[in-house]
Design a protein around this nucleic acid. Structure first.
Lengths: 158, 158
DNA sequence: GGATATTTGTATGCTCTACTAACAATTACG
DNA sequence: CGTAATTGTTAGTAGAGCATACAAATATCC
């Protein structure tokens, strides 16, 4: 006869053991990067819910604030976005009055990007939120570990 | 220490220094996680272009292969996806004939997921691609570094 | 036992990110 | 000069994620 009770126990045990686990996937570095990114993404979204800013939007605000007049193509290069993706983000920030485009004097193909006063103000708030977000993220590491982690991640994306 | 104190060539040097840089954003751990994830994502997409599988699809194939009969809600918990997101991925894999749903005998709410023979075959190919992808990713680390990196990333997503 | 809550799957719609392809304007090059 | 490359722009496609609402099955409580 088919053993129905036994497999039930086996199933339970296996289910319990695997309940929080991911099996052999646990050894895959890329998988952990993906999960970690997801966790950071979710916390970022919560942190910036009030400001209604995304990671990319904050990154663009930040870079334009640091380097006024930067061209869209430069933003894309630094943030590893293509031109089309950069467009949609700049469009959104411009529509919200945080950023303005000006044709570059030295190169008519380029759009020089600048923050508006509203954009500057948003950036100040965003940097405070970033600080809180970073504190949450780094709370689980020592200073040495955080530094090592940044250095290793940089080896991946550089 | 101040390295940016030369007035004459400030503009050129700053521009050159910033050409590939991201300024103060470089100190933000979350930013590096995002860039690293993007780099891994792009390489993954290239590696799996032939198989036409995404990271999530491979993860789901993998987990269902390891744990036949697993419920969708379990997949979502393990991969940190909500039910709706899990649905779309399972739907796609089922539409391609890689997976089938069966109502759970012990709990009528659950759908027990199983791989089809085609799904098993796809998983075998996928695992080979994962190995190549992981080799590319880990090539920049020693075994100890990779282990430490996984452990630190796990602290973020656990 | 029966009413009520919870869990799971499903369907729908929205947003953000990313990519491709095509086109126009500008600049660089041979 | 004419041609090629760069930059911005638009339009379309796709994946992933989330929120909401609903239905069916199960669990819980009185």
């Amino acid at each position: 006869m088919k053993v129905l009770a036994e497999p039930a126990l086996t199933e339970d045990k296996a289910a319990a053991a695997k309940a929080a686990g991911i099996g052999a996937l646990d050894g895959i570095l890329g998988f952990h990067i993906r999960l970690a990114h997801g966790a950071v993404y979710r916390h970022f979204t919560e942190t910036f819910a009030e400001l209604e800013l995304t990671q990319k939007q904050v990154s663009v605000l930040w870079l334009v604030g640091e380097d006024p007049g930067v061209a869209q193509i430069e933003l894309g290069n630094r943030l590893r976005m293509d031109r089309a993706t950069t467009m949609t983000i700049v469009n959104r920030l411009q529509a919200r009055g945080y950023m303005k485009r000006e044709r570059s004097a030295s190169d008519g193909r380029r759009q020089a990007l600048h923050l508006t006063p509203a954009g500057e103000a948003a950036l100040v708030q965003a940097k405070a939120c970033i600080a809180a977000h970073e504190a949450w993220l780094k709370s689980r590491f020592t200073a040495e570990e955080a530094e090592k982690l940044v250095e290793m991640l940089a080896r991946i994306h550089e």
